[in-house]
């Protein structure tokens, strides 16, 4: 089969490559670009460890061919902190509230939380639980992840308010 040329923006940088059409986006991100944030956990689109943000949607990158992401704008956990190294409020929340243990689900959780809070900036605990229900965590029992999301929501809302004032 012929190789396909793909081009997309990942964490603000344009990347491209010549790949087999069957190359899964997760493999393109990990093997071709060398990212280590998105992880492979289940490969059947159940665990969410591979979640990245594509054009304003949370997507499981194990269940998308890289060619489908042609011309897309992708953010992974590597793109969350500011260029000066300041952590994003969500990253900070996960650390402050002990929202991670082994860390394997964390990049996916953070990226899912990112989109969730964009769409619902002040979610209830129940909305958080439904909002992250496409991401499995085997370590934390989710309770501290819920707190981490709340922490991030509060901080982001305060920042938004301050900016408005």
């Amino acid at each position: 089969m012929s190789k396909q040329h793909v081009k997309m923006t990942v964490n603000g940088t344009e990347v491209e490559g010549d790949i087999e059409a069957r190359t899964l986006l997760i493999h393109f991100l990990r093997e071709n670009i060398g990212l280590t944030g998105p992880h492979i956990g289940c490969e059947t689109s159940h665990c969410g460890a591979c979640t990245v943000d594509i054009d304003g949607r949370s997507v499981k990158s194990c269940t998308l061919f890289a060619v489908q992401a042609q011309e897309s704008d992708i953010t992974t956990v590597e793109g969350m902190a500011s260029p000066d190294g300041t952590l994003h409020a969500i990253q900070e929340g996960f650390m402050q509230e002990h929202g991670l243990q082994c860390g394997f689900c964390t990049p996916g959780m953070i990226m899912r939380t990112h989109r969730l809070l964009k769409e619902n900036p002040d979610p209830t605990d129940e909305e958080i639980r439904w909002g992250i229900s496409g991401n499995l965590c085997r370590c934390t029992g989710y309770q501290n992840i819920v707190k981490a999301v709340r922490y991030a929501a509060k901080k982001l809302n305060e920042t938004t308010r301050e900016a408005a004032e």
Partner: peptide, 21 residues
Amino acid sequence: RKRKEDVRFIQGAGNYVDDVK
């Protein structure tokens, strides 16, 4: 105490076996 290992995990900088090339 807050966890020392979190700093790398929350930035996708953990080093799991499949990350080793």
